[in-house]
Design a protein around this nucleic acid. Structure first.
Lengths: 191, 191
DNA sequence: ATCTCATGTGTACAGTTGTTCACTTGTGTG
DNA sequence: CACACAAGTGAACAACTGTACACATGAGAT
């Protein structure tokens, strides 16, 4: 799995990676692959599971470190960007998988995003934010938030992590996007 | 190019398609490929150009047919969904290319999206909508709108075009997303 | 001390890939 | 009519692919 991720991190697309390539990167003979996975798609599914762990770690850190309610968005975006850079290959895999070749992987990633959106909705309820929204509308808003952040992934991953200026730009833009969405949500009248 | 699109439409990922596969689908001998393209990436770039035409046609139709300013969002979404279904393979290619393997294709698609966002901003200015926004903030808003719509692509493309119920759901959700964004934009104070 | 079993190895095979080269063929232009 | 030329052909190549099978090895349990 690390080998596959490494290849993705080097710019390859998951859909174009083969068994031999993976085992070569892992420093192991091709036949060994079958000791662990039925196919490359199977490996992909297990990667999705691990991606879930990465996302959960990120959420936990966000919950622990976002202290000032008034800077909630900025700080969350900052944590997100930091995690995206620290787990570059994982998030590359995620971005690829969303429109990937394996229906199962696609569905898995989407399911992780739904989970993430649900958790976000719960957090907002707990913080007593956006109480003007019905449950369905809150879910809708969180869905939009998660999508927006996910799209920023593409921005982050396509620039160099060292380019502080560009990273700052992405961070600023993502923050504005979310502020806009929350502003809209604050004025939304459910029903 | 049609052959490549057809393969994408059948569920293959562009990054995993080879020359022989394309020519086989086209009913032509592999060597013929080189008469037209330097490489598969080259073909991808030309597909991006054609994608640009598709998008422009869509914009033109939207401008011609969106009559009632108060139903602007709904009607635009409807036209978008219709085009996404009518050009399924093209939009699949677009979704794949966003996180694809070829940097050039990636950049091309992004550039098309920027163009689209700019045109949208111009239209809104012409319609005297969102006049409370500075130019930069209007651009930002349009960027968010285009991203949101692009993400809905993934939803549309992953369901069957015949499943009217699901298509309706996607249409409704996308409309809500955009209403939320525009509501936020309407209350946004530039500067 | 022996057995089990997860992991890895080596060899093999048939099928596929990208690319090359010299060739045919049809079509429009001078 | 002759010619140029864009488009397609067929054979060939070495490199690579997925997968099968029998075999090695080392660690933990009995």
């Amino acid at each position: 799995m690390n080998a596959a991720l490494a290849l993705v991190g080097k710019g390859r697309h998951f859909a174009s990676i083969g068994i031999r390539e993976i085992t070569r990167q892992a420093g192991v003979v091709p036949t060994s692959f079958y000791r662990h996975f039925r196919s490359v798609d199977d490996l992909g599914l297990q990667l999705v599971d691990e991606l879930g762990l990465v996302l959960r770690r990120m959420m936990r850190e966000a919950r622990a470190n976002v202290l000032h309610a008034d800077r909630l968005i900025e700080e969350s975006v900052e944590i997100f960007v930091a995690h995206a850079q620290a787990n570059r290959s994982f998030f590359l895999f995620m971005a690829q998988g969303l429109a990937g070749e394996s229906r199962a992987v696609q569905e898995g990633i989407r399911s992780e995003m739904r989970f993430f959106a649900n958790e976000l909705a719960n957090d907002l309820r707990r913080l007593r934010l956006l109480e003007n929204l019905s449950d369905a509308d809150l879910d809708m808003t969180c869905d939009l938030v998660v999508r927006t952040v996910a799209f920023s992934l593409a921005d982050i991953l396509s620039i160099s992590p060292d380019d502080d200026y560009q990273v700052g730009q992405v961070r600023k833009r993502t923050t504005r996007f979310l502020q806009l969405v929350f502003l809209g949500a604050g004025h939304w009248k459910s029903g």
